[in-house]
Computed example of a mutant assay.
Amino acid sequence: MFQKTTESDSLYNDLEQKSIAELLQGINTEDQKVPQVIAGILPQIEAVVAQVVAKLKEGGRLFYMGAGTSGRLGIVDASECPPTFGVPHEMVIGLIAGGDSAIRKAVEFAEDDTEQGWRDLQEYNVDKNDIVLGIAASGTTPYVIGALEQCNAHGIVTACITCNAGSPLDEVAQFPIVAVVGPEFVTGSSRMKAGTAQKLILNMITTTTMIQLGRVKGNKMVDMQLSNHKLVERGTRMIVQATGISSEEAKERLLQHQSVREAIKSIEDGQ
Results as ranks from 00 to 15, higher is better:
Ala197Phe: 08
Phe175Met: 04
Ala153Cys: 01
Lys265Phe: 09
Thr69Phe: 04
Asp120Asn: 08
Phe85Arg: 00
Gly214His: 09
Arg237Thr: 01
Met221Trp: 09
Phe175Ala: 03
Val132Cys: 10
Asp14Trp: 06
Val232Trp: 05
Leu95Val: 07
Val172Arg: 08
Leu231Ile: 14
Ser10Leu: 05
Leu95Gly: 07
Glu80Phe: 07
Lys55Thr: 09
Gln116Ser: 15
Leu200Ala: 11
Gly134Met: 07
Ile103Val: 15
Glu115Thr: 14
Ser247Trp: 05
Leu73Gln: 13
Lys4Ser: 15
Met224Cys: 10
Asn219Leu: 03
Arg234Asn: 03
Asp223Ala: 03
Phe63Val: 05
Ser227Ile: 15
Glu149Arg: 15
Leu213Asn: 09
Val76Cys: 06
Lys18Ile: 07
Thr158Met: 07
Thr207Met: 01
Ile239Phe: 05
Thr196Ala: 13
Asp120Gly: 10
Pro43Met: 09
Glu123Asn: 14
Leu56Arg: 09
Cys151His: 05
Lys105Thr: 15
Arg237Ile: 02
Ile135Ser: 04
Pro183Ser: 05
Glu249Met: 12
Cys81Asp: 00
Arg72Pro: 07
Asp223Phe: 14
Gln241Leu: 02
Asp100Ser: 11
Gly99Ser: 11
Val132Pro: 10
Asp120Leu: 09
Asn129Cys: 13
Gln212Arg: 15
Val76Asp: 03
Ser266Thr: 15
Ala136Lys: 08
Met1Ile: 13
Val180Arg: 07
Thr236Asn: 01
Pro183Ala: 09
Gln36Gly: 11
Thr158Lys: 10
Ile135Cys: 02
Gly214Trp: 06
Asp127Ala: 09
Phe63Gln: 05
Val48Asp: 07
Val126Ala: 12
Gln51Asp: 12
Val49His: 02
Leu62Gly: 05
Val172Gln: 04
Thr114Met: 12
Glu80Trp: 05
Phe185Cys: 04
Asp120Tyr: 11
Pro183Met: 02
Gly59Lys: 05
Val132His: 11
Glu7Asn: 09
Ile45Ala: 12
Lys230Cys: 00
Lys265Pro: 00
Ile41Glu: 05
Lys265Gly: 00
Ser247Cys: 02
Met91Val: 06
Val49Leu: 10
Gly139Phe: 03
Met65Phe: 10
Tyr143Thr: 04
Gly99Trp: 07
Tyr12Ala: 03
Val87Gly: 05
Pro88Ile: 01
Glu248Thr: 13
Val260Gln: 02
Gln36Pro: 02
Val37Met: 11
Cys81Asn: 08
Gly270Trp: 11
Ala110Phe: 07
Gln44Phe: 12
Glu46Val: 13
Val240Ser: 00
Val180Gly: 05
Gly117His: 09
Asn219Asp: 07
Cys163Gly: 12
His229Pro: 03
Lys105Val: 14
Val34Thr: 11
Arg215Ile: 04
Tyr12Arg: 00
Val107Phe: 07
Glu22Val: 10
Arg191Trp: 04
Val240Phe: 00
Leu169Gly: 12
Met192Ala: 08
Lys230Ile: 00
Pro168His: 10
Val144Lys: 10
Ile145Asn: 13
Thr207Glu: 01
Ala110Pro: 06
Gly60Ala: 06
Asn129Trp: 06
Asp31Val: 08
Ala159His: 10
Ala136Ser: 15
Gln36Met: 05
Phe109Ser: 10
Thr187Gly: 02
Ala153Lys: 15
Thr29Asn: 12
